[in-house]
Simulated scan of single mutants.
Amino acid sequence: MPIHGISLYDYAAGSSQRGAGIPETEIFKALGVEKPQWDEADIIWQQRIQEDNEMTVMTLFSQYFGQIEQHPKLGSLKKESNGVANANMERAKTDEKFFY
């Protein structure tokens, strides 16, 4: 169930883009939310992940995090080239230990 209209897919994609160095303001604008909405959704999604004993939410989060290019609103956001950040994002997609 989305939080302030932020689905788990949106949250994972937004988290991925934040990690890639995309400014939060661009992410919020693309999703049509404000910072307070994102902040509350961030807290609640983290709680849902932690409370999910079957790891279903974390599994989906991880899957969506690695599929950022497919997200209809956030997949096209790009930061100016940053070799280290880009390399880390690529590694996180395939290296589970590095991701965690």
Rank of each mutant, 00 (worst) to 15 (best):
Gln17His: 02
Lys97Arg: 03
Asp39Ala: 14
Glu51Asp: 14
Lys93Ile: 00
Ile43Arg: 15
Gly14Arg: 05
Ile6Trp: 08
Gln50Pro: 00
Met1Gln: 05
Gly19Trp: 04
Gly19Cys: 06
Met1Tyr: 06
Gln67Ile: 06
Gly19Pro: 13
Tyr9His: 13
Ile44Gln: 10
Lys93Pro: 02
Gln50Val: 07
Thr59Leu: 01
Gly19Ile: 07
Ile27Tyr: 08
Phe61Trp: 12
Glu54His: 09
Gly21Asn: 05
Thr25Lys: 12
Pro36Ala: 13
Ser15Gly: 15
Glu26Leu: 07
Thr59Glu: 07
Ala12Gly: 10
Asn88Gln: 13
Tyr11Arg: 01
His4Arg: 05
Val33Lys: 09
Lys29Phe: 06
Ile43Gly: 06
Ser76Ile: 01
Gly19Arg: 09
Phe65Pro: 03
Ala30Met: 03
Val57Phe: 04
Val33Tyr: 02
Gly75Asn: 02
Met89Glu: 14
Gly21Ala: 08
Ser16Phe: 01
Pro23Gly: 06
Phe65Asp: 05
Glu90Gly: 00
Asn53His: 12
Arg48Ile: 10
Gln63Asp: 08
Asp42Asn: 15
Gln63Gly: 05
Ile22His: 03
Phe98Trp: 15
Arg18Ser: 15
Ile43Lys: 15
Gly21Ser: 06
Pro72Gly: 04
Asp95Tyr: 00
Leu74Asn: 11
Lys73Glu: 13
Ile49Cys: 12
Ser62Asp: 07
Ile43Gln: 14
Ala12Arg: 04
Gln63Asn: 04
Thr56Leu: 10
Thr59Phe: 02
Gln70Cys: 02
Asp52Gly: 08
Gln50Tyr: 00
Leu8Arg: 08
Ser76Asp: 13
Gly75Arg: 01
Leu74His: 09
Asn53Arg: 08
Gly19Leu: 12
Lys35Ser: 15
Glu90Pro: 07
Ile22Leu: 12
Lys78Asn: 12
Gln37Pro: 08
Val84Thr: 13
Gly75Ile: 03
Gly19Ala: 07
Met1Lys: 07
Gln46Trp: 01
Glu54Trp: 00
Gly32Asn: 11
Gln37Ser: 14
Thr59Ala: 10
Gly32Glu: 11
Gly21Glu: 06
Thr25Val: 05
Thr56Pro: 00
Gly19Met: 12
Leu74Ser: 10
Leu31Tyr: 02
